[in-house]
Nucleic acid binder design. Structure first.
Lengths: 267, 267
DNA sequence: CGGTCGGTTGACGCACCTCAAGACAGGTGG
DNA sequence: CCACCTGTCTTGAGGTGCGTCAACCGACCG
């Protein structure tokens, strides 16, 4: 299994990539990782491939997909810089998804077998790994919320805001970026058809909330978009509001009814 | 924060619960965990609660939900025995979901702070934790697939098959069980309205695939149900089949084009 | 035995899918 | 540099799966 190895990367740089500050004691950590480059359209791993390594994206843009027997493709995520890929392979020893580069990309190769010894040397590293997987868990929960509750325009609005936020977190503009994926891929991700995605974008443009031309997107009124996410159920799962089973058990020594702490969802 | 503590559970029993076989060397592991009992309707944790511990279900049945500002509720999962809860809190230090007992239940309390030392004592334990989170990741990916690709009847069929499989894995009957959740909760989980769930169940019953009476379900023809999952797209995201961007990069030193290994989805 | 909650079933409407036509951008070859 | 070609995007018109609204029934519980 020869891969095109890139330069080596030391633990410090990996930590920087993950926005993880290692305690000084760990700075001495003498581990280094190889990297791998992929060009557009190339797959990093496929469903069923034996799992050996995790990948952290150093540069570039991916999509992860589930492909069923009929060749039908469901997009699961659009990972970018600092994101983790491959963690779905730990459970069964085989990757459960396929990762495809949407542009020329480079990933840091983190052999899973090396993790035990790494964790022992640096507990902070172990923590970071758990946190990375947890983040992925939360992200997928957010997607379930979006496709479960929101209508077409709400989903597209949520996608735009989320994408803007992710670019912003990497130091790029939050208000102007260009998408690397097609309408078809966005649609698959959101559980919509590409025409519906296109129409939603056109509608937002017409309403002055964004400016779109092909893959170039400029966000003009983020608050306006957010309104579609916050208050535009436009779809299923309304219940539970009124007579919910709050039903505090008759007499519980358990945690006091801390206020539900409603914080605005951020997808 | 006084909780109603239950009996203590040692590391060996926790390992058994997780179907994890510890190497003999780890059998000496002298750790024990407290448990906590909940009655129906009681919440184990809520969105925004500070994260300190993971929970492994020892007995009972839960739902995990996301609740937004409007009180709208999206069901994320129906965890049962041996399942992990709370891992979504690692990333931010606050739980991202709420866990509600659907019947009298008992959970094993695993303080997250204890994990580092536990991992050091038993690498197998660390592995198990990663595997548990990975399993959760795969499960959520499966849900994204289901709601992204399948129509209403396919979703309900997938839910029934998945539920049967999970009961079976715990030693209960795969063909006869009773649901602990309402149609409303199933609908939220699947992105459908309760009436649609009810209609799908009635249709399966009329077709002789199952027998339903309220929460009691008997699966008569699992293969028949599976047909709805495998071949009943009935909904969005058809593309990607024909002229997909297979586009093997002009000249790649990378992994040979291993056959995609189409395995039937199992949700 | 009455009230409430959960479930079923029917009639109707709408949001999104389907099908179709056309415009445009970017890449390739002449 | 231009002509062509292909893949992507946009927009329209019509169909439908599932949501909505509503009535009813049966289980469970007090």
């Amino acid at each position: 299994m020869t891969t095109n190895h890139g330069v080596l990367v030391n633990a410090g740089e990996l930590a920087r990539l993950l926005r993880l500050e290692l305690p000084a004691s760990d700075a001495t950590l003498e581990a280094s990782f190889s990297t791998r480059r992929l060009r557009e359209g190339e797959s990093l791993f496929r469903v069923g491939d034996p799992f050996h390594t995790l990948y952290v994206i150093r540069a570039g843009f991916f999509k992860t997909v589930l492909v069923d027997a009929n060749g039908l493709e469901q997009v699961l995520a659009f990972p970018m810089q600092s994101d983790l890929m491959g963690a779905d392979g730990i459970a069964s020893g085989h990757y459960a998804s396929e990762a495809v580069a949407l542009e020329g990309s480079e990933v840091v190769v983190v052999p899973f077998s090396a993790l035990s010894s790494l964790s022992r040397q640096s507990p902070a590293f172990e923590r970071a790994l758990f946190a990375l997987m947890s983040r992925e868990l939360v992200r997928e929960q957010g997607m379930l919320y979006v496709v479960g509750i929101l209508g077409a325009e709400g989903r597209v609005a949520a996608f735009l805001l989320n994408t803007a936020e992710r670019f912003g977190a990497l130091g790029y503009s939050r208000s102007s970026f260009n998408l690397r994926m097609t309408r078809q891929e966005i649609g698959s991700y959101l559980g919509l058809k590409l025409e519906t995605v296109s129409r939603a974008l056109s509608a937002f443009d017409a309403a002055g909330l964004i400016k779109v031309h092909l893959k170039q997107v400029d966000i003009v009124d983020a608050a306006g978009l957010r309104r579609y996410v916050d208050s535009h159920p436009a779809s299923s799962a309304r219940a539970a509001a009124g007579p919910t089973r709050v039903e505090a058990p008759r007499r519980s020594a358990a945690s006091a009814p801390v206020a539900p702490r409603s914080r605005t969802r951020e997808v």
